[in-house]
Design a protein around this nucleic acid. Structure first.
Lengths: 182, 182
DNA sequence: GATGATATATATCAGCTCGATATAATTTGG
DNA sequence: CCAAATTATATCGAGCTGATATATATCATC
């Protein structure tokens, strides 16, 4: 499953331009799926070629031209097929965790700064999920489940950092000493 | 921070071949950083070119030739600099969460299967972290912190799925009905 | 009224990553 | 004794990421 499938997913809920699809990604999926224009525009071109979406040029007054995409019948079938056969992968790529792994090579101040930055980012993500949940519009059970899942996981991460931060900093003193930084 | 930095990190704890580096990645980092040969070998070639690692060809009896890499002085300085300036990013790409988001397009049986598969994968990851912790060798405070962090987050994910699974499946019946699958 | 920041809108590109595949010898297990 | 796994390096296409380019229009501030 890739950006193409996600684009079809967004279009299954209504026609949209590439720009609008990116906005939906940012609002609804940002905490578990990132996709920029460099993925979205090629994806839409590919989907058009395959006949899974259809494109209409919309001239707007006082706005740049817009290409509005629509999910075709074949596209809808394709989306259902993908969702039914896709393996539920869940990949994490954490430079934060790389840094904590190599804490023994860093000065204490840097480790503290890394932990605090991560906590701030987590809080921002949780706030984003909350504002998305409260945003009015009736959410499907699946979206509610997913938002709750995201919140639960991010809260657990924040709680762990807050309750083990002191221990890590204390153990760094006792253990192999930190090297100087540049 | 990319595969190159991680390779230098591994080499800071002792010389190793590309193959051995991949094994360390699998054992110690697999739950937060994935890198295959397609990233590691080009990374090592690049690091050699830059003078941050040095390579020795080791002929072995009854084994294929081995290229053993060693972190140079300049490489060690470069590693410390990278670790000191890198932003603590933490990215998730979850096709699992995409599937739960679109649960309303799937038959209940498929949603149940997806949730169960994710739980099995989480259990396997937790078991992997546990066996890594118990593996004897004294771990640095940073590695212990990171392993605990990983466990806490994965346990929270499993607990959420187990305690909200029933609700999602029940709400799917009441809410907009599921579409037929292929 | 001017200046700069933000929003709308599409598109490309270099560099990096991912998973699969190729090659080849040797050891382990049934 | 054969099949499978392990040791070992390497490449390739497809896809992704983040930055950049291009253009216009609006909005807030000075």
């Amino acid at each position: 499953m890739d950006t193409k499938t996600l684009c079809m997913g967004v279009l299954s809920q209504g026609d949209a331009s590439g720009y609008e699809i990116k906005k939906v990604f940012e609002q609804a999926f940002s905490y578990f799926f990132v996709a920029g224009y460099g993925s979205i525009y090629p994806a839409l071109a590919d989907l058009t070629e395959k006949g899974w979406v259809a494109c209409t040029n919309v001239e707007q007054e006082k706005r740049p031209m817009k290409k509005v995409y629509h999910l075709t019948e074949a596209g809808h079938r394709q989306l259902l097929q993908e969702l039914n056969k896709a393996y539920p992968h869940h990949r994490v790529r954490s430079e934060f965790m790389v840094l904590t792994c190599y804490a023994h090579l860093l000065p204490q101040g840097r480790v503290e700064q890394v932990l605090e930055q991560r906590c701030r980012d987590i809080e921002a993500t949780i706030a984003h999920i909350d504002s998305f949940i409260d945003e009015g519009e009736a959410l499907t059970p699946g979206v509610r489940f997913t938002a709750g899942f995201g919140k639960a996981v991010f809260e657990a991460a924040r709680d762990y950092i807050e309750s083990h931060k002191g221990m890590l900093l204390a153990d760094m003193d006792k253990g192999p000493s930190a090297k100087e930084s540049k």
